[in-house]
Each structure stands twice: as structure tokens, then as C-alpha cells.
């Protein structure tokens, strides 16, 4: 039976879009969220590499090479071209890490055998139609290297979660769009009160 977007609480593959332009100095306010995991919309089943390359403004091959430690559902991934995102999966991305552990966890690394029994193995997929959500976590150097692209792509937030974060960035809003309509930044607080349960927040950081 085909798996579709409704299985993933993502009807039609879209949430109403809230787009915020923010001062770059407020970017670090999102570090805790990026570390613990953001719900992100994925348009269709994509490999980890294809997903990353699809992010707006993703810096490309240089950064891709720097993503040396990748987990899907907690399992270290060796081949990011083959590992495919599925509904509800958790993707975690890190730079190369120190320690024997860091070397062991590296994708395709020399010491991969030392964690062979937990290594991610690509399975046959059910047919999946439409968009779905995945959880993405960013660690260490990738917070600043991949974080801006991921946040511009948009993260799915509950309205209460967004309200909880608002204090840390509200003063840095330079532009606000709700469902494609410009709204005065000063109206953000009142907009928060009228938002539906879930929105796709696209966060664009300006220097």
C-alpha cells in the first residue's frame, strides 16, 4: 500500500508559510532547536545528499565534504547518496569529530567496522507519494554552516513553540510575510495569537 503524506500529519505536503527576515545576530537563538531537532518538510523521498543540495543557499560540495558524520534514525550512514529519507525519520549531521569515536563514526571511514552492527543499512522502500516531514538535527560546525539554509527552507513549528522562541528574535525582525502577504514587523505579536496550530516558518538571516 502506498504511503502518503497524510500518514505523516502533513496534509497536502504544505503548512501555511510564515516568512521572517531576521538580523544575523539572532541566528544563535536557534541553536538549541537545531541541536535537539527541527521538523522539516521533504517534498518526496530523497537521498540525504539530494535533500541537502535542495536546500536554498546550501553552500554545495565544500560543505558536503565537511559533513563527515551522518546518522539516520541514530544509525551512522556511510553513503549519503544511497541513504534515503522516509517519513518520520531523524537525520543528524555533524562535521568530523575527534577521538577514536569520531573516527569510527565517520562516513565511509577506515574504522567503520568498529560500529558495523549499528550502521545504517538501506532497506527496500514502500512507495511514498507526496511530501512528508523529517526531523533534522545539526551539530557543531554545521549549526552555522548548514543552519541558515535549513531555516530558510523552513521548519515546521507549533504556534506555542514559535511563541516560546519569539522573545529571543522578535526585536530582529526586518520583514514579515504571512501566506505571501507582507505584514508590518510590529504586528508580529498579534499575528502569533492568530496562527494555526502548525506553520512552516522560513527564516532568512540578513547581515
Amino acid at each position: 500500500m502506498p504511503k502518503n503524506a497524510h500518514d505523516n500529519q502533513n496534509p497536502g505536503g504544505l503548512f501555511p508559510c510564515l516568512r521572517l527576515s531576521l538580523s544575523r545576530k539572532h541566528f544563535s537563538a536557534f541553536f538549541p532547536l537545531l541541536q535537539s531537532g527541527c521538523l522539516v518538510q521533504c517534498p518526496k523521498p530523497l537521498s540525504v545528499e539530494a535533500f541537502l543540495l535542495s536546500l536554498p543557499g546550501f553552500p554545495g560540495a565544500t560543505i558536503l565534504d565537511g559533513i563527515q558524520t551522518v546518522f539516520l534514525d541514530g544509525r551512522p550512514v556511510d553513503d549519503i547518496k544511497a541513504a534515503t529519507l522516509e517519513p518520520d525519520c531523524e537525520l543528524a549531521l555533524s562535521a568530523a569529530m575527534p577521538g577514536a569515536l569520531g573516527a569510527v563514526m565517520r562516513r565511509g571511514g577506515y574504522y567503520a567496522a568498529m560500529r558495523g552492527h549499528i550502521t545504517f543499512q538501506e532497506q527496500e522502500h514502500e512507495t511514498i507519494q507526496g511530501a512528508f516531514c523529517v526531523t533534522v538535527k545539526l551539530f557543531n560546525l554545521l549549526l552555522s554552516q548548514v543552519g541558515p539554509s535549513l531555516l530558510e527552507h523552513g521548519i515546521v513549528l507549533g504556534s506555542e513553540e514559535l511563541a516560546g522562541l519569539a522573545n529571543s528574535f522578535e526585536s530582529g525582525i526586518s520583514r514579515l510575510e504571512w501566506k505571501g502577504q507582507d505584514i508590518a514587523p510590529g504586528e508580529f505579536s498579534s499575528l502569533l495569537e492568530s496562527l494555526p496550530n502548525r506553520v512552516r516558518a522560513q527564516l532568512v538571516f540578513k547581515v
Binding site: Q35, T69, F71, G74, P76, A92, S94, M97, P98, G99, L101, G102, M105, R115, I118, K137, F139, N140, L141
Partner: peptide, 15 residues
């Protein structure tokens, strides 16, 4: 940038 404690998130993610 992060010291040796940079490992926490990664080791935790690996279970």
C-alpha cells in the same frame, strides 16, 4: 571552537 565536549551530541545520536 567547542572543546572535547563537542562529542556529546554525536555520541548521544549514535546511541
Amino acid at each position: 571552537l567547542f572543546g572535547t565536549n563537542v562529542l556529546v551530541n554525536v555520541v548521544n545520536e549514535a546511541g
